[in-house]
């Protein structure tokens, strides 16, 4: 099996997905969580794009269209997440969901 660029891109995409997942789980800060989600999104898109290149000459446009659609969807999601994070931040004057819990535990 020759290592074609497609494989590298695909693996990178999947790896990004996992990295983002790790970030989402381990980072308590909301902003980082949102960034982690965006890394995951990029990973998925990269993976999707590589699917279209499976057969050399003819490039499948459907995964491309999927990615384009997905980008817009993820932009919306990110916008909502950021706006919501702003509100949470304003309300609690804090940047993550964990801190509140630990603070109340300390008392």
């Amino acid at each position: 099996m020759s290592v074609s660029p497609t494989f590298v891109y695909g693996l990178t995409g999947l790896f990004l997905f996992v990295v983002g997942l790790g970030g989402l789980i381990s980072c308590p800060q909301l902003l980082r969580k949102i960034l982690a989600v965006n890394i995951m999104v990029s990973g998925v898109f990269l993976f999707l794009v590589t699917i279209g290149y499976g057969h050399g000459v003819i490039i499948d446009p459907v995964p491309h269209a999927m990615v384009l659609t997905g980008i817009v969807v993820s932009v919306s999601g990110t916008a909502v997440a950021l706006a919501l994070a702003c509100r949470v931040h304003e309300t609690f004057n804090m940047s993550d969901l964990l801190k509140r819990r630990t603070r109340s535990n300390d008392r």
Partner: peptide, 21 residues
């Protein structure tokens, strides 16, 4: 998870033509 994903990605499965044509 990454190992599983890589395994699923790299093992040759059915390789359809897709919708390009």
């Amino acid at each position: 998870l990454s190992a599983a994903l890589a395994w699923a990605f790299l093992t040759p499965g059915p390789d359809p033509l897709g919708l390009a044509h």
